[in-house]
């Protein structure tokens, strides 16, 4: 045997020696994974199951078509109001988020991008009750909107911006540089590259961001308490007209003494959780191609 061949043989032995331990640690990783999966499944089933059992026991078709005041009536005003608020929030957060993300991914310098990202991250971590207070002082009082769709929606919108901006930033960044180069080499300008290439290519990511931010916004309570208050009927105006929403029904009705109020709360929880569930499934389904 030559010297190098014997070395090779030694190395082979060395590398095979620990293999049983490695088989075990390989298994261990999977066991830990399954444990966590089990825990999460249990938690989720418990929460969703609880809401489902309580909700299904109380909900009726009539609740979807009648307005209510948190102790009597239905949920129709709260369901419509939730969508109105979220829609108003999107009106603000969608353009700001989508173009902010574009700016972060494509045009910001290391410095300006860093500053903007920091601001956005700080915004995410501001407690929603503080945002609500801000909305109350600035929008409701100072700008004289009153408790309203505009005040509540804009406050929600501020909260939605970071999600849309950061997720869409990631979707733009995932588009390979060669794709941009190809467009520039054909004579495209920055606007054309942004609108005809990046925005189109990132649409799945943007859609996911929108659905995620809707489902988060729909579950907010604290900031709406100060800006939208509650309305026993539908809201049709933009300002000086409070808005109903589902989380308020849950929060308020549970504190009421009557069993019907509790039934309203459970039903509102079920409607909310199943809508959010549906939105998240939808976003997974849309994102499935990628």
């Amino acid at each position: 045997m030559t010297e190098s061949a014997s070395k090779t043989a030694d190395f082979r032995k060395l590398m095979d020696a620990k293999f049983e331990r490695r088989v075990f640690s390989d298994l261990l990783v999977r066991i830990i994974g399954y444990c966590i999966l089990g825990l999460m499944t249990g938690l989720l089933l418990a929460i969703v199951g609880y809401v489902a059992i309580l909700g299904l026991g109380s909900i009726s078709f009539k609740m979807f078509v009648t307005v209510g005041n948190t102790s009597t009536g239905g949920l129709a005003n709260a369901i419509v109001g939730t969508w109105e608020l979220v829609g108003m929030g999107l009106l603000l957060s969608l353009p700001v988020g989508v173009f902010g993300g574009l700016y972060l991914s494509e045009y910001s310098s290391r410095y300006t991008g860093g500053v903007l990202r920091l601001f956005v991250d700080i915004l995410t971590s501001i407690p929603s009750i503080v945002l609500g207070l801000f909305g109350y002082l600035v929008l409701v009082i100072e700008l004289n909107m009153g408790y309203s769709l505009l005040a509540g929606g804009l406050t929600l919108g501020v909260m939605m911006i970071p999600y849309i901006m950061r997720i869409s930033e990631i979707s733009y960044s995932n588009i390979p540089g060669e794709t941009r180069e190809a467009a520039f080499a054909l004579g495209a300008n920055s606007m054309q590259v942004s609108l005809r290439l990046l925005l189109v290519q990132a649409r799945v990511g943007i859609m996911t961001a929108i659905l995620l931010s809707i489902s988060i916004a729909a579950g907010e309570t604290a900031q709406l308490l100060y800006t939208a208050l509650f309305n026993n009927g539908y809201t049709t105006g933009l300002t000086h007209e409070p808005v109903a929403y589902l989380t308020y029904v849950i929060w308020y009705s549970l504190n009421q003494p009557t069993p019907y109020a509790h039934a309203l709360a459970y039903s509102a929880a079920l409607v909310l959780v199943s809508s959010i569930f549906f939105l998240l499934l939808l976003s997974k389904y849309i994102g499935r191609g990628k």
Partner: peptide, 13 residues
């Protein structure tokens, strides 16, 4: 002045 890149880079469309 057109350019065909070294690495094929079609648009994902």
């Amino acid at each position: 002045i057109g350019l065909v890149f070294q690495k094929p880079n079609p648009f994902p469309m």
